[in-house]
């Protein structure tokens, strides 16, 4: 569930940064079209992968419900942090990008 949440948050942040107006305000400069496209791809891939850890750990029924819950919660947290603590919001996504796959690998091998 936690790994799913991390992947969801990172995915949403990538999608958010893929939008020019958010990219400009968060990074401080206009993003190149190629970079934005790459971010959009990364975002959708992360979101696409995010249900699997929860479903692998809890079975599809529980896993799917948990994934839906953390999907909404992570997007909510992101949108709430953006106007008040934008640097924290981006930093958290960085942590998620590293901790998410690491957690998935640990859960997979452990």
């Amino acid at each position: 569930m936690l790994v799913s949440a991390l992947l969801c948050y990172a995915g949403f942040m990538a999608l958010c940064l893929a939008m020019q107006k958010h990219h400009a305000s968060l990074v401080g400069r206009q993003g190149a079209p190629g970079l934005l496209r790459a971010l959009r791809w990364a975002g959708w891939c992360l979101l696409g992968l995010s249900p699997w850890p929860a479903m692998a750990a809890q079975g599809w029924a529980f896993g799917l419900v948990q994934w839906c819950a953390v999907l909404m919660a992570s997007a909510g947290l992101l949108v709430w942090l953006l106007p008040y603590r934008p640097r924290l919001a981006v930093g958290l996504a960085g942590v998620c990008v590293i901790a998410g796959p690491a957690g998935a690998l640990l859960a997979g091998f452990g």
């Binding site: 569930m1 529980f62 419900v65 948990q66 819950a69 953390v70 909404m72 919660a73 909510g76």
Partner: peptide, 16 residues
């Protein structure tokens, strides 16, 4: 069926 974490997320979604 929800455990403590999911239950809180349910509650927060309801409040949302």
């Amino acid at each position: 069926f929800a455990g403590p974490v999911l239950r809180w997320l349910y509650f927060i979604s309801g409040l949302a």
